[in-house]
Amino acid sequence: MANIAAQRIKREFKEVIKSEEVAKCAIKLELVDDNYTELRGEIAGPPDTAYEGGNFLLEIKVPETYPFNPPKVRFMTRIWHPNISSVTGAICLDILKDQWAAAMTLRTVLLSLQALLSAAEPDDPQDAVVARQYKENLEMFKLTARHWTNVYAGGPNVNPECDEKIKRLIDMGIEEHQARVALSSYNWDLERATEQLFS
């Protein structure tokens, strides 16, 4: 790994560890390997959003050309968000692509992602299904996002109705996550989800 990249990550790592966001448990950063090429990030779901109470793990890969190129970041925790793929966790955020600047750091990236959770950009979507729900039925979107936060990110809001519908599909032999995706995509309409699953 290029010297400058490793050295910068080392310094950034220390900066994050000492930052007040870490003290407030809002963000977290851990090393995965010792040559500073891969890190594990964690952000807390912002308050007053559907993601409140959840903790979202991020995979951070630092390229050789860092900081001239942005780090590659992906959600490892499943999340229901217009700008994040519900399948792969890929993120659509300008600063991680063409708007990256060498003066940005891992700390600013983590904070930007946290900001993205509180302010989605449905017009520049990563996940078209989620974005459509967000635009057409915001309440349904919030319900779904809260449910996903509860199931995958340890959020506090249990939704027995969702759990019940998923259980119905599981009883029909559908795998749990597949059932959740289908129901989430069809606004928790059990009939249409079933139809789609068995068509």
């Binding site: 400058i4 050295q7 910068r8 310094r11 950034e12 220390k14 900081p67 001239f68 060498a102 003066a103």
Partner: peptide, 15 residues
């Protein structure tokens, strides 16, 4: 040495 004063620090390499 570890962290230069802001006015002596390069925003790119942080050195």
């Amino acid at each position: 040495f570890a962290a230069p004063e802001a006015k002596f620090e390069c925003p790119i390499c942080l050195s």
